[in-house]
């Protein structure tokens, strides 16, 4: 089947060394990158609606510098895989990833993108059981679909991964969780 072949032919991700490889300069670059991520408008399924909600007034991803959703992969550096990746869609996902300029990051949003989620069952014939079979993933955000807070937390983790430091306070772990905060 096509999709299996695709996994076998998974492209080696080649990222050339940065032109400017001086420690402090790189740190500044990384800081800038982490605070101005440009996600791609790439909605696949249910999670895409939550991704839209994050961009809108209440959750307002602009607070964290990632509101510039770009329809073109050429202009974006964060791919949020929001939804189920089917075998039919898989080649397009790989192509989109390859079209993004480096450095680039991938967030697997929702259970479908992580592992196939609810659509993984014994005789399934149509979906990829996790987008990490196709492209390297930096952050996994579980949920079906994840709440907008989840997506924001995923973004924080990615920023931490890029810049090496967490900029936002941790969510309280002992609750009670209030809505909309």
């Amino acid at each position: 089947m096509a999709a299996q072949n695709l996994v076998a032919q998974k492209p080696d991700v080649i990222v050339a060394d940065p032109l400017l490889n001086i420690g402090p300069a790189k740190q500044i670059m990384d800081l800038c990158r982490s605070m101005s991520l440009w996600p791609m408008t790439f909605g696949l399924a249910c999670c895409a609606i939550e991704m839209m909600a994050v961009g809108m007034a209440r959750w307002d991803i602009a607070r964290f510098g990632a509101e510039v959703f770009r329809p073109s992969p050429r202009q974006s550096d964060l791919m949020i895989v929001a939804g189920t990746v089917t075998k039919k869609m898989a080649p397009a996902v790989v192509r989109l990833y390859e079209q993004m300029p480096a450095p680039r990051w991938v967030m697997a949003l929702g259970n479908c993108a992580i592992s196939g989620g609810p659509f993984k069952f014994k005789d399934q014939y149509g979906i990829m059981e996790g987008v990490d079979h196709l492209i390297p993933v930096d952050v996994y955000v579980p949920g079906c679909p994840p709440r907008p807070e989840g997506l924001l937390e995923g973004l924080f983790l990615l920023q931490e991964k890029i810049a090496g430091k967490r900029f936002w306070p941790n969510a309280p772990l002992d609750g009670p969780f209030e809505e909309g905060k």
Partner: peptide
């Protein structure tokens, strides 16, 4: 079509 075919009718058999 079919880029998001999630096999609901097959799942109903499971």
């Amino acid at each position: 079509l079919g880029y998001l075919h999630r096999m609901h009718e097959k799942m109903a058999e499971v």
